[in-house]
Structures are given as C-alpha cells and as structure tokens.
Design a protein around this nucleic acid. Structure first.
Lengths: 146, 146
DNA sequence: GTTGGTGCAAACGCTTTGCATCCAT
DNA sequence: ATGGATGCAAAGCGTTTGCACCAAC
C-alpha cells in the first residue's frame, strides 16, 4: 500500500522504518498521523478511536504494537500521568518537558531544561551520578484561566 | 489489638487515624512499618511479602487498601517508575524529590527543589500557572559507581 | 454493640500473546 | 515468495470490588 496519509516527512519516516528492517504499514502511518495532528498527549483509547476513523479495521493490539515500534524509533514518546495512566505524543525535537494543563488536558512543551544545571550541582552535592530524569509539570494554561 | 509493631511515633500515628475516624489496625501498622524500615521505594508485591512476614494472613487487597489510606493521610507517597509500575515509600517531611539508583534501587531524597525558582519563570514565560510538578531523578549512587 | 476493616474470590480493565491470514517488500 | 505485520480472541496481570465475617472502637 502506498502513501495513504499525508504524514509529515513521509519519505524520511519510511526510511527510518526500512533502516531497521521494519515495514512502513498503513496502520503505523495512521498512528503516527493521529499523534502528529494532535495538540497534546493522547491516551491509547483515543488513539485507537482516531486511527479507526482513518483505517476502520485497525485492531487495538495493532495500536499497542505500533506505538511500541514508534517509541523504539524515537518517533513517539510516552508520558506517565498523575493517575498512573499513559499517554503518547510525537517525540519532540531535542530535550523538552511537557506541561499538562489539568483543565483542558492540552500539553505545552517547555524547551528549557532546568536539569542541565541541576545535574552537575547534584552530583557534586550527593555524589550520585545523574543519568536520567523525568520531569512533568501540571498547571492551568492561559485559556483555562478564565 | 494493641501496639503490635514498634512503628515510629506510634501514638502520633494512631491519632492521625482516629482524627479521620479510621481504625489503627495491625495490617495498616504493618504496611507502614514495612515502608519505614525500607531504605527505598517498594513495589506492592514486595510490601505484601514483607507484611506477610509480620502478619501472615494479610491479603493483597488489604495491602492495596492500606496504602490508599496511608496516602490519603499523607503518611505514604506513591511514585511512578520508568516502566509505568508503581512503588511506595514513607512520605518525606516537607517537599523532596527522590533520586532512584538504577543499580541498587535505593532512593536518596533530594531536599532542594529547583521548581521553586522555575515555576515563577515559567509562568512569566508561558503564561501557564504551574500548580504541581512531578520530578524524579535516576542515577548511580556512590556505592554502585565501582 | 456498632461500624469500619479484613480475607477471599470473583470481576475488571488494560495490555500482551498465539495463531492463522495478509501484505509490504 | 517470504517474512514481518495484522486482526481476532484468548490469556495475563495488576488492581478493584462484593460480601460475609471479624475486630477496633
């Protein structure tokens, strides 16, 4: 099947798949497209619902498997929300931190990482070699601050 | 049943329960004691295993319900680990951030919060009113840096 | 004695897996 | 043509719930 969806950088994406010996299937394209068109992070069920609009027969298991693949290819990121549920979004360029609006559930990415400075300070203070961090911010976005 | 376990601040804890009309049961005490004696965050199954050593008949459902209660009383905190699983620890005094050693799984609490300064800056930059944040650090502790 | 808590087992929801079929390569 | 990907349904797993009994108050 050909270029079903007008996903961003179609040829580039196709190559990312092929470089790893993976197939660029319509289902994977659809999952990626749904995330590309979303303003924020989406839950599995929302992704599945939206994917089915593009590709009616798509099964839930395929959505799970596609997301796993897309994460492996660094095209998609997964976040842990406060209640322990997961959501997904297209991987941002570079290192960013999502700010989740607790009212409308939109996500704004914050590009400045306070950890860059902090990591060094922390290693000096505690002796712990900081390898990774998970920072998630929750707040109320402009529109929701009626 | 009386003071079964030598949990820290037994009378204080008992009062916290009673103030909310909750009972200070041996099971709840056991869950709290297990967490108090742990150096780091524990998974549900580890907590259950340890609790059963103190109180053999304890059911898994009770561990879940006890943790829920203890969180509600701010005696215990829940963290989301990288793989989406949950772990629990006694609530630290004040505002702290846990640093999880990816080798030995111990947790060191970091008392300085970089968010205090950042929140203001962020609100000014983006207009988003930061209400809450979740920061978790991963690294290698001194002992594991062989 | 009353009321909330417990233990057990069943139910639940999200996620993963097995397998036959399909299709991107 | 061939091996990876899909769809379906079943299994798996962590968590929650219903209910009869129990124990803290």
């Amino acid at each position: 099947m050909g270029k079903l969806f007008s996903i961003n950088n179609y040829n580039e994406i196709k190559e990312i798949f092929h470089d790893k010996g993976l197939k660029c299937t319509p289902q994977r394209q659809a999952v990626l497209k749904v995330l590309q068109e979303s303003k924020g992070y989406l839950s599995i069920s929302k992704i599945h619902r939206n994917v089915k609009e593009l590709l009616p027969g798509t099964g839930l298991a395929t959505v799970y498997r596609s997301l796993e693949t897309l994460i492996e290819l660094n095209l998609v990121v997964k976040v842990h929300l406060e209640d322990g549920c997961h959501s997904y979004a297209v991987a941002p360029k570079g290192h960013r931190h999502p700010i989740v609006c607790t009212d409308c559930n939109r996500v704004i990415d914050y590009t400045e990482c306070p950890m860059e400075d902090l990591s060094k300070k922390l290693t000096k203070d505690t002796g712990i070699l900081i390898q990774n961090h998970f920072l998630q911010l929750f707040g109320t976005c402009k529109q929701c601050q009626t």
